[in-house]
Design a protein around this nucleic acid. Structure first.
Lengths: 118, 118
DNA sequence: CTATCTTATGAATTGTTATTCATATGATAA
DNA sequence: TTATCATATGAATAACAATTCATAAGATAG
């Protein structure tokens, strides 16, 4: 034993205490994790980039990201359930768009992270 | 037929064209998706919140987020492989910390999204 | 009404990912 | 050296998610 000085050990315990205080509730963690999961599939991420240019109907999303209608529809449902995108009906078509600015903000930060090799 | 006016149809085709131009490369999409996936598990998200208070060794991460040593170690590997966290050895311990500010920035944006019911 | 266009959904299959257990590796102290 | 502490990893299982197919539902035109 004696791997830590007493001072170090105390500092570590303090850190754990702070970490526990900063921890969001289980509910918030679940919700956040679900949202990140929603945007963590390549096809769904493509859908978001497509929608970053403005609203699109399902058929055009299919054209923009590839894949088939059923798959895209399932993916849109996941994005909608997690409030990443929103939908409005326009006659026979359903127009999809990004739910709010936070979504693109998050993706922008991620893209920056991608570009700088830190 | 005749579901769209000719003007509308043109506008939609333009939108698809723009969407395709704005689309990142397959490689960038994959990398981004992998990073989002890395932070989309509740336990891994908890690890990031714990590390947002400063670096921690593995044992203390285990205390802060719950779970067992092996599971946490596997999760840390995923986070490290995706450059979400970084590690430095300190004697027998390995200290983990967030890779850079982008990570917390992304999580902060997500938390805002959580708080405002838009 | 029927026919058609567009989107959504249930069920089955397939593919991925997390968790656990046992053990290996790396570092330090005696 | 051996003993111990701290972390990492491989392999198996178990849990979960994505994709496909077939079909249903919603909207409009005729």
């Amino acid at each position: 034993m004696g791997n830590d000085s007493p001072g170090d050990r105390l500092a570590h315990e303090e850190r754990v205490k702070y970490a526990l205080q900063a921890m969001p509730s289980e509910d918030d963690i679940s919700t956040l994790a679900a949202r990140f999961k929603a945007i963590s599939e390549p096809s769904r991420l493509k859908i978001l980039f497509a929608l970053s240019c403005g609203e699109l109907c399902v058929e055009h999303i299919v054209q923009a990201v590839g894949g088939n209608q059923s798959a895209v529809s399932h993916q849109l449902k996941i994005l909608k359930d997690n409030r990443i995108v929103k939908a409005r009906r326009n006659g026979k078509q359903v127009m999809y768009s990004l739910a709010d600015g936070h979504v693109m903000a998050m993706i922008s930060v991620a893209k920056e992270h991608l570009n700088c090799n830190d």
